[in-house]
């Protein structure tokens, strides 16, 4: 009997109907499954053995687990040992998710007076280095004096890191707050934490700052920053000309430069699938501890 294949049908999937003449019931469900298998084949092959399905925002949350992309300083053993130490430190102190622009409170034990602690509240203006050396800078204005404090977040002196307000800003580095008007880097020291719903996307704070008049610490006009409003107001003609002269508009198309600054996806997946289970476990433990602490505070004793 002649049978013409419909044009749109996938020949390789449907061909079993043509060749299995004696099979009494060719299961329709099986073909669907086979279709699905073919569709998922690419995904399955991409995910190599031993790796897990890693959430998309994991690389932003745990950026410090990724090694430095500079080829000269890559060392697989060093990276592995660092990751192990970082996980151990994280099991002692909860290091929450935060970004440049979020407001943090860091409590550190004071090396000069035993048994006492210092704490500082400020906006996170930059993240430096990676691995165990990860360092953040907090900025605040206290008594009309701008203060920047740098903390190594894996420092054993650190007692507690709290996120008072989780948000992102328009730029990845906000050192220009040093030359901005003080109102933009002032934070209430006794601020209470603002809670976000779990799984909600991190909000982006789109405030644009105003700068103080010259002199500035750096040539901010050359850095293509999105978060500054009145740059041109203070620049003279020579400085404007220099900005145009020194501009490198081709740099954003330089694919290999971009590649040399990142860790490719395969390597990221390998690293994150290694720490995935452990870090989820640590986070859950910290959550339980925090709940228990809250419960003890909310029950005041009756005074006779």
């Amino acid at each position: 009997m002649l049978r013409i294949l419909p044009k749109n049908s996938n020949y390789f999937v449907n061909s079993q109907f043509l060749f299995l003449r004696h099979s009494s019931s060719a299961p329709a469900a099986a073909t669907n499954e086979k279709n699905k298998e073919i569709a998922n084949y690419a995904d399955k092959k991409r995910i190599k053995k031993g790796s897990k399905k890693i959430p998309n925002d994991f690389r932003f949350k745990y950026q410090d687990f990724l090694p430095s992309p500079t080829a000269r300083y890559r060392n697989s053993l060093l990276e592995k040992l660092m990751r192990k130490d970082m996980l151990e430190r994280r099991s002692q102190v909860h290091i929450p998710e935060f970004y440049v622009g979020s407001i943090l409170k860091v409590t550190i034990s004071d090396p000069h007076s035993q048994g006492k602690t210092n704490s500082f509240v400020g906006i996170c203006t930059q993240r430096e280095y990676t691995g165990l050396c990860t360092r953040i800078t907090l900025r605040n204005v206290i008594d009309h004096q701008g203060i920047d404090v740098a903390y190594d977040i894996y420092d054993p002196l650190i007692q507690k890191i709290e996120v008072l307000k989780l948000e992102k800003r328009l730029d990845d580095r906000m050192l220009y707050l040093r030359d901005a008007l003080p109102e933009y880097s002032t934070v209430d020291v006794n601020m209470e934490p603002e809670l976000l719903a779990e799984g909600a996307p991190v909000p982006v704070n789109e405030t644009i700052v105003k700068m103080k008049p010259l002199p500035w610490m750096q040539k901010w006009e050359r850095k293509e920053l999105k978060g500054i409003e009145n740059l041109d107001q203070y620049l003279n003609l020579w400085r404007k000309q220099q900005r145009e002269k020194q501009a490198t508009p081709w740099e954003k198309y330089d694919l290999m430069k971009e590649y040399r600054r990142t860790i490719p996806e395969e390597q990221q997946n390998k690293i994150f699938s290694e720490i995935f289970d452990r870090i989820n476990k640590i986070n859950e433990e910290h959550k339980i501890k925090a709940k228990a602490a809250r419960r003890t505070i909310t029950k005041p004793q009756n005074i006779r």
Binding site: Q63, S68, Y73, Y129, T130, C133, D152, P156, Y259
Partner: peptide, 25 residues
């Protein structure tokens, strides 16, 4: 190592995902 950060350990940029190249770079 903490307290004496190496400048070489600059962080990797992660905003754009890309697959690993199979040619020597």
């Amino acid at each position: 190592m903490v307290g004496k950060p190496l400048k070489s350990l600059g962080y990797a940029e992660v905003t754009k995902l890309m697959s690993e190249l199979k040619v020597p770079v």
